[in-house]
Simulated assay, not measured.
Amino acid sequence: MSARLVVDFVGECHEPATDETFTIGRGGDLVLDADNPFLHRHFLTITHARELWWVTNVGSQLSATISDASGAMQAWLAPGATLPLVFARTVVWFTAGATTYELELSLESSVFEPVDSRPTGDGQLTIGRLSLTPAQKLIIVALCEDALRRGNRGASSIPTSASAAARIGWPLTRFNRKLDNVCDRLSTWGVRGLHGGPDRLASTRKARLVEYALASRLVTPSDLALLDDEGAAEGKHTATQ
């Protein structure tokens, strides 16, 4: 017998049937935000086949970031891609316009259990051999602030670069330069969707960075302390490192 699946969006829970296609988007079985014109009417579908549940991106423009609950596994679900749900809890993030959505998919029993992987902090955060300076981390926290403060699944907003720069007391030019740094370093280490260019808007790149940071637990609610006056001042001093 197949494991029971629960789709949870801000406390609104659904249990897809094994013989039907469950749709998620601006319309469908789970309506995330009927008023967001940037969100596909049908963006994700959940189906059951070969004794597994599958999530498929049926949209044409948006991608989704999918992670296990610990952040040890992460996948980028591009339009047309399909992924099996194998963990007890799977978290999905995607951005439409200036809004990032987060929902949770829970299985009654799972095929795999992720390995616990927790970063250790001594002033720097390491992902493999990649280290972020306090200033670089401060930028990411500023962009993820709304999602981190909400503390629950749902919708959060991504600030403009000007707003994020003002939040930490930096000139916009410095913020953009350090944001380029962060995106370039993560891109070098295989994180897709962060490269700039004429065909990629800055807002799209920031959205992907926010999704990745939340999914990989690159930042957590405890990092919000960095946005206090003392933390912001420290970030200013390290911005040229």
Rank of each mutant, 00 (worst) to 15 (best):
T100A: 09
G190A: 09
T82N: 07
F112M: 12
G197A: 10
L5W: 06
R150H: 15
E102D: 09
D8E: 10
A239Y: 02
A142T: 07
F22T: 04
R4Q: 13
Y212G: 02
G154I: 08
R118E: 13
L148M: 10
S106C: 14
H237I: 11
V182L: 01
R177S: 07
A164G: 06
A72M: 06
W189L: 12
E108N: 05
D19M: 10
R26V: 11
I140P: 01
C144A: 14
A164S: 10
R192W: 12
S222L: 12
A72Y: 04
G128W: 04
F87I: 04
H48D: 02
R153Q: 10
A162K: 12
V219P: 03
R89A: 12
N36T: 11
L105W: 01
V219M: 03
E230N: 05
A81V: 06
T160L: 13
V58K: 03
D68R: 00
G27L: 11
T238A: 07
R208T: 15
R4S: 14
L218T: 05
G193P: 00
Q74P: 02
W76I: 13
T238G: 01
P134W: 04
I46E: 00
D180R: 00
E113T: 15
A78V: 14
L105F: 03
D122W: 06
P37C: 01
T204W: 10
D146F: 05
F38E: 15
L194C: 11
R217H: 15
Q136A: 09
P119F: 13
L32F: 08
L32D: 04
Q241V: 12
Q136V: 05
L32P: 03
A147E: 06
V141N: 02
S163W: 09
R177P: 02
I24P: 00
K236H: 09
L201I: 03
P119V: 14
V31F: 06
D19I: 06
L218G: 05
